[in-house]
Design a protein around this nucleic acid. Structure first.
Ligand SMILES: NC(=O)c1ccc[n+]([C@@H]2O[C@H](COP(=O)([O-])OP(=O)(O)OC[C@H]3O[C@@H](n4cnc5c(N)ncnc54)[C@H](O)[C@@H]3O)[C@@H](O)[C@H]2O)c1
Ligand SMILES: NC(=O)c1ccc[n+]([C@@H]2O[C@H](COP(=O)([O-])OP(=O)(O)OC[C@H]3O[C@@H](n4cnc5c(N)ncnc54)[C@H](O)[C@@H]3O)[C@@H](O)[C@H]2O)c1
Lengths: 213, 213
DNA sequence: CTAACTTTGTGAACTATTTCACAAGCCACC
DNA sequence: GGTGGCTTGTGAAATAGTTCACAAAGTTAG
């Protein structure tokens, strides 16, 4: 199969979210145009994105909502449960560990880890903070493929190496650090400072066209 | 001036971060190649990005670190302080309100707002939670141009409209909702579910080339 | 001062992504 | 079962973004 652009995958997630809404409301079909308006894109984009994976619509009618949600979940790998570990029981880690949105989507947090002796063993939200010393063996036992990194930048690369050594194959990092991973591992970084600085740039340079999501 | 790509602006932020490091270490100059390695890109990309804004380097030598940081701060609009309001004193709002990284970069949080009577007026981190009823007038008085949105999706668009009415010109949203803003307002959305689903897709479809930051 | 070497700045080439535009397919209705 | 009105699926065109490649300019050493 052809390489799928990251932008396409992101839109698929968005389509799925809105299709689920429509499905809940009992709507049977949705046209590419309706979906595009809900998701802030164009109908051609919707059709092109979906066409990479098959032919899901009916001409003259649109896409069957319920069926398409199932297809998208399949495509995105969301028909299964993914085990996730969180590293860093700090402020960001706390928000994430208790975020319902993840569980709803099939991401189950199987452990939260920290290296601060004052935090280890203490109850924390619905979970208990585990010792970093147990991280690798726990990941191996649970076969958790995904890790969320919520520690300061300094140790980010070292912890990432440890995670990968233990078998983690996908990492979502919140540390504002440049991290490198081998080719078989996926890494996404969320860097809030970069987002804010992007807004600062836009305000400063008063770009003519804006309003992008 | 030509329209600057979002990807370029993001990289500028990254260059700045690493240049500041080098500056702190007392390094005088840095080549595009060195910067590229630090930031996970290519030297041609670094030179191209910078060339949109001027000619900052010396051939044969590289870029003057201290000078270039100043230029980048200028370009990104970081020479000034930006006032920021946070809407939503929940888990994500809590993490953000106390995040040192923002202040360091010149983003000063001038108020945190919520509509929950149990939270309003209570101390919260280093601040006090304000009533949503005061939001618009406070923004007008303070002339805060940036808002961070950390409330559930349901009310996101309504609150955004209120913010814009009060004069906010840039919004960073954490609500996983499609929000529309008029052309003179900048909007960035951080959607963690989309990031995780992107990882799920990558794991499921075992893409051949990965490891992107 | 010259030669060898380094590194920038930038058009041009290339690659990726989005948009266009339309034939083909499907439904509904008569 | 034919007609009209929609809407998909998709090559082709257009636009956007990245990489190449090299002349020009600066540095260093002798
Ligand atoms: N708080 C925010 O709003 C925010 C926003 C954007 C980015 N971030 C980034 O997220 C990361 C975490 O931020 P935070 O505000 O939650 O910080 P925090 O200080 O509240 O939490 C960090 C936690 O990580 C733990 N830790 C440190 N080193 C560790 C290691 N080597 N192994 C295991 N645990 C370790 C600490 O004990 C602490 O509990 C930082 O990189 C920060 O820059 C935070
Ligand atoms: N917690 C996370 O890790 C996380 C991750 C990704 C996205 N998000 C998103 O961020 C947003 C906030 O999440 P959270 O976990 O902090 O939720 P939360 O429930 O902890 O906090 C939300 C806060 O917003 C307030 N609020 C609700 N409606 C409001 C309104 N109309 N005006 C003002 N305040 C209002 C509530 O009183 C509450 O204090 C949600 O959209 C969520 O989907 C959260």
């Amino acid at each position: 199969m052809k390489r799928i652009a990251d932008s396409t995958v992101r839109r698929l997630s968005t389509y799925l979210r809105y299709l689920e809404d429509l499905d809940t409301k009992g709507q049977q079909t949705a046209s590419s145009d309706e979906l595009a308006h809900l998701c802030g894109t164009t109908s051609a984009q919707v059709r092109k994105d979906l066409s990479f994976f098959g032919s899901f619509g009916k001409r003259g009618l649109g896409y069957p909502v319920h069926e398409l949600t199932a297809h998208l979940r399949e495509i995105l790998g969301l028909e299964r449960e993914w085990k996730v570990v969180i590293v860093g029981a700090g402020k960001i880690g706390a928000a994430l560990a208790n975020y319902r949105g993840f569980r709803q989507r099939g991401f189950r947090i199987v452990g939260v880890y920290d290296n601060d002796p004052n935090k280890i063993g203490k109850p924390w939200g619905e979970a208990i903070v585990h010792d970093m010393a147990d991280l690798a063996s726990d990941i191996r036992r649970e076969e958790a493929p995904i890790a969320v990194l919520a520690i300061p930048s300094d140790d980010a690369q070292a912890v990432v190496n440890e995670l990968i050594g233990a078998g983690v194959r996908a990492i979502l990092s919140f540390a504002p650090a440049q991290i490198t991973v081998p080719p078989h591992v996926s890494l996404k970084s969320v860097n809030m400072a970069i987002e804010l600085e992007g807004l600062s740039f836009a305000l400063t340079n008063a770009l003519p066209s804006q309003g992008v999501a």
